[in-house]
């Protein structure tokens, strides 16, 4: 199962529509980094609106993806984390401290723009 990565000008958009398992997450990590390399993108928005569950491993992978993308010069914003997901993450002690977040795709893009300009 591969998660589609869409290109929009200098940004990449990913809307995760499936429940993430370990394999899919790792595949996604690889795909995204390749895509950033290929397209020279400067910003990435990962939308998690339809994700209902994130376990500690997936959370770690997401954190890693953000860090790796930053290393490659692309800012990442996570958007649309559901309340239930947020509560589970906090309960597990996963704060995703270094990761910028936004309410939805629209605000995520705005945030990216701000961060890239500022």
């Amino acid at each position: 199962m591969r998660i589609p990565i869409l290109k929009l000008h200098k940004y990449l958009l990913i809307s995760v529509q499936v429940e993430l398992d370990d394999q899919t997450a790792l595949q996604f990590q690889e795909d995204l980094l390749n895509k950033i390399h290929q397209e020279g993108s400067i910003g990435v928005v990962i939308d998690l609106t339809s994700v209902e569950m994130i376990d500690s491993y997936i959370a770690k992978v997401l954190g890693d993806v953000v860090e790796m993308s930053n290393l490659m010069g692309a800012k990442v914003v996570l958007t649309g984390i559901q309340p239930a997901v947020a509560i589970t993450l906090i309960d597990m002690g996963i704060m995703l401290n270094e990761v910028p977040t936004a309410l939805d795709l629209e605000q995520g893009l705005e945030k990216l723009q701000q961060e890239l300009e500022g």
Binding site: P83, I90, D104
Partner: peptide
């Protein structure tokens, strides 16, 4: 603190 962290996670 936990509430504030969760608020940040959902993007506010």
């Amino acid at each position: 603190i936990q509430t504030a962290e969760a608020i940040r996670l959902v993007g506010a």
